[in-house]
C-alpha cells in the first residue's frame, strides 16, 4: 500500500518536474497543466491513493488474473509472449495511442489488447467497455503509473493527430460547444457540482463515482458528447482514437495515474 502511495506521489512529482522543463514553443500544442485527479476533493484523493479503498483496483486485480489466463485456439495468455507485465508493460501506456504498422491503424491500449487477442492468441476480441477489457487495460496502464505521457504524433500517426486536433476545437451538438471551450477556456471553473478538467486521459480507465464502475476514456468522451447533446461516436471509432491521440499529446509530460477516481 505504501509503494502504491509512493508511486502516486512520485507521479505528482514527475508531473511538476515535467511542467517546469517543457521548453516554450517546442510544440504548437498547448499543454494541459494537471491531471483531472488534481480537482478531486480531499476525500476522493485519499480514496484514490489508498490501494484498498480505490475500487478501480478491483479491475486492476482482475486484469492481473487475466494477464496469465490462457484463452483462444493458440493456447496462449498475455504472459506467454510478454512475460511479467510488471517488467514488460512498464511505460507502455505512456506511448499509446500508437500507430501499428502491421494493421496500418492507430491503436489505443484497448484495441492493442484486442489485436493481440485476435492475431496472436486466436481468441475472440473483447467487446469495448466489458469488465475484461477494462481490467486488462487498467492492469497494463497501472504498470506505467508515474511515467510521463509521451506519444508519437509524427509519421503515420500525423493524420490522426490532425484529425483529433480539428475535432477538439470543432463545435458540436445542440449546445454548439467544442471540447476546447470547456477544457481549455474554462478549465478549473465549475460546471454544476464538478470542476472542469483540462481534458486529459492520464487516469484512464477510471473508477467514476457516477458510473459506479470502471470506465474507458471513450465512455467519457461519449458522456461529454451526450452532455453537449451531440451525436455520440462508437467507442473505439477512428474519431475517438484521433481525439485520444490529441488528448495524449496535450498531456505530454503528465504522469499516468491509472486507475484514478473521478466524480
Amino acid at each position: 500500500m505504501n509503494a502504491f502511495r509512493a508511486a502516486i506521489g512520485a507521479g505528482w512529482l514527475a508531473a511538476l518536474t515535467a511542467l517546469s522543463v517543457v521548453p516554450a514553443g517546442a510544440q504548437e500544442v498547448p499543454r494541459a497543466p494537471v491531471s483531472g485527479s488534481a480537482f478531486l476533493s480531499q476525500e476522493l484523493k485519499a480514496m484514490q491513493a489508498d490501494a484498498f479503498a480505490n475500487p478501480g483496483v478491483l479491475w486492476l486485480e482482475e486484469g492481473e488474473r487475466l494477464w496469465s489466463a490462457v484463452d483462444g485456439k493458440a493456447g496462449k495468455s498475455c504472459q506467454s509472449c510478454h512475460g511479467d507485465a510488471k517488467q514488460s508493460m512498464k511505460g507502455v501506456a505512456a506511448r499509446y495511442p500508437a500507430f501499428d504498422a502491421a494493421s496500418g491503424k492507430l491503436l489505443n491500449l484497448e484495441l492493442r489488447i484486442n489485436d493481440c487477442r485476435s492475431r496472436r492468441m486466436v481468441a475472440e476480441p473483447y467487446r469495448y467497455e466489458t469488465n475484461e477489457l477494462l481490467s486488462l487495460t487498467a492492469y497494463i496502464a497501472a504498470q506505467s503509473r508515474g511515467r510521463p505521457m509521451a506519444v508519437d504524433v509524427t509519421g503515420p500517426a500525423a493524420p490522426y493527430f490532425e484529425r483529433g486536433k480539428a475535432l477538439f476545437s470543432q463545435r458540436q451538438g445542440q449546445l454548439n460547444l467544442s471540447c476546447a471551450q470547456c477544457h481549455v477556456d474554462r478549465a478549473g471553473q465549475r460546471l454544476r457540482g464538478d470542476t472542469i478538467s483540462h481534458g486529459v486521459g492520464v487516469g484512464y480507465p477510471v473508477y467514476r463515482i457516477e458510473w459506479q464502475s470502471a470506465g474507458s476514456l471513450h465512455r467519457r468522451l461519449r458522456a461529454c458528447a451526450f452532455g453537449v447533446r451531440a451525436e455520440q461516436a462508437d467507442s473505439g471509432s477512428p474519431d475517438y482514437l484521433s481525439l485520444e491521440l490529441y488528448l495524449a499529446k496535450r498531456a505530454e509530460g503528465l504522469a499516468i495515474d491509472a486507475p484514478a477516481i473521478r466524480k
Binding site: F52, V57, L58, E61, E62, R65, N131
Partner: peptide, 8 residues
C-alpha cells in the same frame, strides 16, 4: 460473484 478483497 466477482472477486472480493479483504484487509486485516
Amino acid at each position: 460473484l466477482a472477486p472480493a478483497r479483504i484487509s486485516m
